[in-house]
Computed example of a mutant assay.
Amino acid sequence: MTQNLTSLDLAEELPQLDAALDTIDRILKAFVSLDADQMRRLSKLGDKTESFCRQTAAILDQNRQALPPGFDLDELKRDFAAFDLLRPRLNRIEALAAKCADTQIALGSDILSASYDGYALLKVFGKADNVAPLRDSLRSGIRRKTITPGKASAT
């Protein structure tokens, strides 16, 4: 094989990973899921609006007597607290998910590279009868590396 970005034997770690994911799933049951339409319609809190909202909450807290009975400042403060606690955990989950995605891409690339190398070897060693179905399954326009004994090239 000309490429081997990663090698993993997940047999021992998978039960632990699955248990950890089950725990995370259980903990996140109270979290909401939004569809694309809901997501599009919602106002988004960005850096500038977050600063505005924090300043507004502080001023509202200083002027509680001016708030109407239906305005739940305590809920706003609880939302901010949960928001602040969730942010670093979400950043960590996103980083872990990106690492998993990168690893899956690397594994897929290793698989594809080794398959192309193996296909080229079958052709070189005269296993043409076995190669015909493989050749038919390759789509045109896919850049692949092939090897010949002693050197590698792109075709």
Rank of each mutant, 00 (worst) to 15 (best):
A36F: 03
R41I: 10
A36D: 06
M39F: 08
K44R: 14
R41K: 15
G46W: 06
T49D: 04
V32S: 15
L34F: 11
K44E: 04
T23C: 04
T49L: 02
G46H: 09
R41P: 01
M39N: 09
A36I: 02
A19T: 10
I27P: 00
R40P: 01
F31A: 13
D47W: 07
A30E: 12
L34W: 06
L21F: 05
F31C: 07
Q38Y: 09
T23V: 03
K29W: 06
A30K: 13
S33E: 14
V32T: 14
A20R: 08
Q38A: 10
A36R: 08
D37P: 02
L34E: 01
L42E: 11
D37K: 14
T23F: 05
L28F: 11
L21S: 04
R41Q: 15
S33R: 15
D37H: 10
R26Q: 11
R41C: 09
T49P: 00
L28A: 14
F31E: 03
A36S: 10
L42I: 07
A19V: 08
M39D: 10
F31P: 00
I27D: 12
R26I: 00
K44A: 08
D25T: 07
D47A: 13
A20P: 00
S43K: 15
D35G: 02
A30N: 13
D47C: 02
D35N: 12
Q38P: 01
L28D: 06
F31L: 06
L21P: 00
K29I: 11
D37Q: 12
L42N: 08
I24F: 05
D47Q: 12
R26H: 08
G46V: 02
S43W: 12
I27L: 14
A30G: 09
A30C: 05
D25F: 04
A19P: 07
K44S: 07
R40W: 05
S43P: 00
M39P: 00
R40H: 12
T23R: 12
R40D: 06
L45K: 09
M39E: 12
R26D: 13
D35K: 05
D22S: 06
L42S: 04
V32P: 13
T23I: 07
L42T: 05
L34Q: 03
T23P: 01
I27E: 14
A19S: 15
S33C: 11
T23K: 10
